[in-house]
Design a protein around this nucleic acid. Structure first.
Lengths: 126, 126
DNA sequence: CAGCAATATAAAGATCACTTGAGTATGAGG
DNA sequence: CCTCATACTCAAGTGATCTTTATATTGCTG
């Protein structure tokens, strides 16, 4: 199992999932995707892009100059897409488990559903 | 907005959500809840319990001695429950957004059933 | 009964993504 | 002119986690 991603890393990969973007474009896309709730810092972003490139989760797509400013575009690699899918699934299951446990701890208003299951180890279906 | 939790912190709170437990019991509960996929380390656990107590997200419940070993039980505070609920919701939304973006990036096989990003796609420069 | 696993907690140092804060440079708009 | 937005870079500091080590008791097994 891969180590869990930190929030900035998760959002950088998510911002690149639909199409290639340059660094500053990632900043804007993350802000847009999160309704302004997550704002990456420049220092975090560029360091993370270098690290993710070294890890093979993203790669440089092409460079271009717009209005005299150079941009470097990055795209998600297939390893990056796989890692992001796995992370999204991990988050989904984690959220579900937390909700179940919280419900189990609240004033029991009656026998709810079966005992709290968990992370399926193998293919499952919920 | 509170800072996102790291994985061990999230699972410690989740393990305490249904009922008070002692440190070692948290270790076992986390392993159970995650189907053995997450195993907290003792060093991480006890340091985190101290930190979370200082932050008011958990608090000591009572001490007891079982088979000659002393246990210290902890319980989630109401602030802790609120924080965990918020975190679970954040995870749920993050997972959903990542999935949508990944779907938007995959070869479009036709109009999606659910809904892909209902956001403007092209436009900015290019 | 010796030895090891499991139970139960504690604490020191290392690690590394992230934060903070500063800097460089161009172009657009008031 | 001056400021904001764009676009990227780098160094130092932070902090939760990881790693390792230590302590002590009980239960199981050879």
């Amino acid at each position: 199992m891969a180590k869990p991603m930190r929030e900035p890393t998760f959002w950088i990969l998510t911002a690149l999932a639909a199409e290639p973007r340059h660094g500053y474009g990632v900043l804007q896309e993350v802000s847009r995707l999160t309704g302004g709730q997550v704002k990456l810092l420049a220092g975090t972003l560029y360091a993370a892009l270098d690290r993710l490139t070294a890890e093979g989760l993203v790669e440089a797509d092409h460079d271009e100059v717009v209005d005299g400013r150079s941009r470097r575009y990055y795209r998600l690699t297939s390893d990056g897409a796989t890692a992001l899918e796995a992370e999204a699934e991990r988050l989904r299951l984690s959220a579900r488990t937390a909700r179940q446990q919280l419900a189990a701890g609240r004033p029991e208003l009656g026998p709810a559903l079966g005992r709290t299951a968990a992370f399926p180890k193998l293919g499952r279906l919920a």
